[in-house]
Every structure is written in structure tokens, then in C-alpha cells.
Nucleic acid binder design. Structure first.
Lengths: 286, 286
DNA sequence: CTCGGTGATACCTACCGGGTATAACAGGGC
DNA sequence: GCCCTGTTATACCCGGTAGGTATCACCGAG
């Protein structure tokens, strides 16, 4: 009577995201009429109007927006439950699984990650760690929907909201310039210096498939970016630890006014796994 | 195929908590055979063994424990989605609902709460605040399953894990003694002093219907506790602000070594409501 | 005024969730 | 050793409902 099945939620989410019954039905692999009916039923059961059916497409009501947000969290939580249960698999041992999935932004914190993995592997009865490279700022979603159990995150880029976390490292930021560029001769630079170079527009990173507006080139791969810098086509701002992968044609210049980057280890607040606790203990002792 | 319906989750949770198919079925208001079948189906779909069927009852496997924990979070999230959507109700206004439910431990932080409500009501276009009194340490659950949108919590009693929060107030703790008791004459006391009084055993608070072991009386109501103290039958430890409801027969003595109590305002990390943001802003400015 | 695109309705079918009855199995009491 | 009790699993049936197809109702654009 008041139980909100995940199937209904999935259906509503599809419609709310597409704002179009036909496309939503296609995405769900079903016909449009049963989808319409299911959403109507959902509205009747909740006793609220979720969608405004304008003759040309659909728009969300206030309650619809609420369900879109809260439903996303709920769906993530259920798929997380399924995934983590599957991973816990045959292991009948109490105290949680013997395998952890660690999400790391691809290429970031090389050295820290290496030290962490080595130190943890040396611990007595440590679990197996699977390192899962993630796209830009995707670690949050991975923790939420159970693709990962724990993540290395970088404030202020990642949001730690909703997770437990421990601080691991703080570092400054550097501008990475083509070695030959006039600015590369400076000892230090400011953010204003590098964000306003006429011949070197700041690169724009892919974020969930879309790019922020601006004149710079669209980037979704670190190697691609490195090459464009080496070719003198762009400039980028990175944490100090990015020095590890600089090319000969690159020059790193410290930024005086860039916010410091704080690397955290973060995990879902309700986690109760012994293996996770061990990893966190190891990480904070580094 | 991999979708984990809430109905299945509810069924499994009931069995996992009761560890008995018959009782679980009764609790769910259904017969036992379909419940057995549903759980079998769930196990087959997940491809893992969740329960060990011993001839005498049932026990959880590692995967079963995982699903018990993760599933609780998932079910809470879906019921929260349903509840909050219902509450968002007819309000088609963007930016979230015009009504917030604020969970407060019954009787705690009177003064702070009063100031907060007054200050917020004076704000331009403030939402309506419904104050929801909650039992001991129940605010977490209320935020998780959507009965509340925001809560006043008291560290270290409440756990802030998984929520966003702002600190509002820090206070010391006091022992509340019968006015005539010898210890009531002291200027200060230590925790050891009050936890080991032969004739005044510490009261035990109800927590989800159960009581911690010990010699003291079982308490689930502040008035009841106040009376027992006045009668010289027990002693209790409270934050400073409890002085507000002391009786004439009570004496409050500061505790030197009790951990300070920090009152926070806390809310689900993914909340995006304008009304909530306004309330938080008001609270932090107090 | 018609046509294209949208969501809603009508109707049918098949699946499956739920109920009842009963089997299979283990343990304890005599 | 045998039966009785408590437990979960199996067999079978029924009804509700999720999903499909065909079609309608509506409105905006040209």
C-alpha cells in the first residue's frame, strides 16, 4: 500500500530524466502504454502529482523533483546492496568480505596509492584490494552504488558529503606549461596569471560526458592533455603530485593562490567491514 | 535480471532478523511457503547463498549479513523517498517543500530550539517547521527513513556519520542528584564519583525498547526519571541545559571529566532544499 | 484544416505472487 | 526404536497485474 517498488522507481526516474514517455519506454526496453499506466499508478499510490503532462512533452512538479532526487539515492542504495552482496559471494566468513574495491581517480596520487597498497599488503591477514580507476569526480557515485567500497578523494574537487573520511595528505597546486613558454620562466604564478593567457586557454575536462564552456580544448584523458601541453596548445592546473608524470617538454610552476588539495580516504558511513577498518588504519598511519 | 525488488528485500530482511521463516511470514502478514520461495528466488538471482538452513532454524552467511546491513540502508532510502515525496505533496513550487520536519530529542535543548524557531520564523519567506520529538538517539533513523528532514543531534550520543552537519553549541555535563544527598554538597564531581554510589545506581535509559544491564531503574520518560531522582532512588548525568527542567528536590553538580556535549544541526547529505538551507543558515548565525 | 507527434485508454494474454495442503527431515521424549 | 513436534521445501491452484498491441484524444505547426 505504501511501499514504492524499485520497478516503479526505475520507471519514474527514466521518465523524469527523459521528460518523454516514449523515449523513457525505449530506454527501459518496454512499450509506452504500460509505462504511462505504471507512472499513473505510482502517482495514485503516493497520492501526489509527479508530472505535468503538457501536450508537448512532460515537466516535473515539486513532488516530482523531490522523488527524482530521493529516488536516485534509493536506487543507488539498492543496487549497492545487490552488488556488495554478490561480491561478498560465497565467503561465509564473518566480519565482511576478504576483497575490497578501491576507487581512485585515474592517475592521481600514484605515490600515495603505491605506499598504501604496499603497507596494507604487509599487514597480517589483509584482504585483497582491487584498484578501480574512475573518471573525473566519479568516485562519489561509485561508493554510492556499490561499484566501490572505499575511495581516494581529493577535496575540493570531490564532495565528501555523506561519507566518512580521514585526511591523508595536503599538497599545493602547480601550473603545467609548455617548457618554452615565457611564463614557464617564473618561480611562481597566480591563478589569474594562468587563467587568462591569450595563447594558452585552460583545458576543459570531461565531466559525465559534458564539458564546461570555454575556449580551451576538450580533454578526457591525461595523456591527451600531456600531449597538448607539450605541443604548446594549452595549460593545466594540477596538484603537486602530478610532477610524477611530467614530460621533458613540460614545466611545472607552483601556484601561490590555488586552494590546497587534500587527499582523503572515504567510505560509506554505514560500512562495518573489518577489512575496510584495517585499510583505513593503515592509511592513517602512513 | 539484476534488479533486487524492494518486496524481495523486505522479505529477506524479515527472515534475516527473525532467523525463522514462520515468524517472518507472520510478521509480513503472509504464509510461509511463498516466503521461502521468494527468498530462494532472491538467492538464485543474486547467485549467492544468503542463509544456512539448519534443520533447526536459520543462520546468516557472510553474504547474508552484508545484505542485511546494505538492505537496511536501501529500504530506509526508499521509504524516505516515498515519505518526502508525499510531503512535498501538491506544492508545485520549485526549490523544494515549504514545510520541514525537525527531529529533536524530546526535552533536550529547549532554549536553543526556541531561539532557533523564533529566529527562523522571523526570516523572510521561511517554511513551516514541524517539530518531531524523538526517543533516545532515534534522530538518525528518522533522517534516514524520511520521517524527518533535519535534526538536532548531540555528540557523542548521536552518530553524525553519513550526514552533513553544523556545530551549534558545546556544553558541559552535570550530575543530577537528590537535593538531600551527601554528594550534592560538593562543588564538582567526577564520573567515577557518580557511577559508583551504592545507594544511587545510575538510571538505565530505554534504547529501541531494550535496556543496558545494570542495577539502576529502567527509564523511558524524563518525568519518570525526575521523580525517581527526587525520591532519592537514582542519579542521572545530563548536559548543562538540563538545568532548565530541574525540580526543587534536585541538585545539579558539574562533572569535571565528562566529555562535553556538542549540539549539531544535521541533515541528509544529499538534501538540496532551499528551505533547509535557510534553516541551517539561521541556526549557524545564532 | 490536416498532419505529425504526444500521452491516455481499451483489451487481451501470460506470468507470477500468494494461498492451501502436504512432504521431507531432524531431534527429543518415551 | 518409534512417534511426535517443529521446521523448511515442494506441489498445485487461482487471481491479480504487468506487459503487449491497437487505437483514441488532443494540440501545435505548417
Amino acid at each position: 500500500m505504501d511501499t514504492l517498488e524499485t520497478r516503479e522507481l526505475r520507471y519514474f526516474m527514466a521518465v523524469a530524466e527523459e521528460l518523454h514517455f516514449g523515449r523513457a519506454a525505449e530506454r527501459l526496453g518496454m512499450a509506452q502504454p504500460p509505462l504511462s499506466r505504471a507512472v499513473q499508478q505510482l502517482e495514485r499510490r503516493l497520492g501526489v502529482c509527479l508530472l505535468k503532462r503538457n501536450r508537448r512533452g512532460v515537466s516535473l512538479t515539486g513532488a516530482g523533483e523531490m522523488l527524482l532526487h530521493e529516488g536516485r539515492a534509493a536506487l543507488d542504495a539498492t543496487t549497492a546492496a545487490a552488488r556488495r552482496t554478490r561480491r561478498a559471494g560465497g565467503a561465509d566468513s564473518p566480519g565482511g568480505p576478504r576483497r575490497l574495491v578501491l576507487a581512485v581517480k585515474a592517475g592521481a596520487s600514484h605515490e600515495l596509492l603505491h605506499k598504501l597498497l604496499d603497507a596494507y599488503a604487509a599487514e597480517p591477514d589483509s584482504a585483497e584490494i582491487e584498484v578501480l580507476p574512475s573518471g573525473t569526480c566519479e568516485q562519489e557515485g561509485m561508493l554510492r552504488d556499490g561499484r566501490a567500497d572505499v575511495a581516494l578523494m581529493h577535496a575540493p574537487f570531490n564532495s565528501l558529503a555523506g561519507f566518512d573520511s580521514e585526511e591523508l595528505m595536503t599538497e599545493g597546486q602547480i601550473a603545467i606549461l609548455p617548457a618554452g613558454h615565457p611564463l614557464a620562466a617564473h618561480r611562481t604564478l597566480s591563478l589569474a596569471d594562468v587563467s587568462d593567457i591569450p595563447d594558452l586557454p585552460l583545458a576543459r575536462w570531461s565531466r559525465h560526458g559534458t564539458y564546461p564552456p570555454g575556449p580551451g580544448p576538450e580533454i578526457h584523458d591525461q595523456t591527451q592533455l600531456a600531449q597538448l601541453i607539450a605541443l604548446g596548445r594549452t595549460v593545466a592546473v594540477f596538484p603537486d603530485s602530478a610532477r610524477a608524470w611530467l614530460w621533458a617538454e613540460h614545466t611545472a610552476v607552483p601556484l601561490t593562490d590555488a586552494p590546497p588539495v587534500v587527499t582523503h580516504i572515504a567510505w560509506p558511513a554505514h560500512s562495518r567491514s573489518l577489512a575496510l577498518a584495517g585499510l583505513i588504519r593503515t592509511a592513517t598511519r602512513l
